[in-house]
Amino acid sequence: MPVSLTIPADPASIRLARLVVSGYAAQAGATVDEIDDLRTVVDELCSMLVAHATSVDDLTLRLSSDGRALHAFVSGPARESWMPDELAEGIVKVLADIYEVRVGDGQVELTVEKQLELVGT
């Protein structure tokens, strides 16, 4: 079942996103290592948006899983200066299987997919 979370676009709130992704991934059957990876990935995605956000902005995190993979989607307002961070993107690309960026309609949307190992199934 998909889950979504809206948080203020500030660094302190990213912790909530991390906690939610841990809980969600655990429920989806992810291993401890995969949960750590997903937490780092969501942290980086949110940070990329927070870096260019203002205090009134919100970020939306959506999580879904089809049992084989976990999808995370983070969106926030696209400020004029928004550019993906090279280091953050590098990390995300290593830790997730698919990474996509979409900028349009004043929004930045970052999507990742991570395959799950599915132990014991």
């Binding site: 090279e86 280091l87 590098g90 990390i91 690309k93 290593v94 830790l95």
Partner: peptide, 15 residues
């Protein structure tokens, strides 16, 4: 760039 090449290597090593 070197950074684009190095990030996966370093992260891979940490993992």
């Amino acid at each position: 760039s070197f950074a684009a090449f190095a990030v996966p290597t370093v992260v891979g090593e940490i993992k």
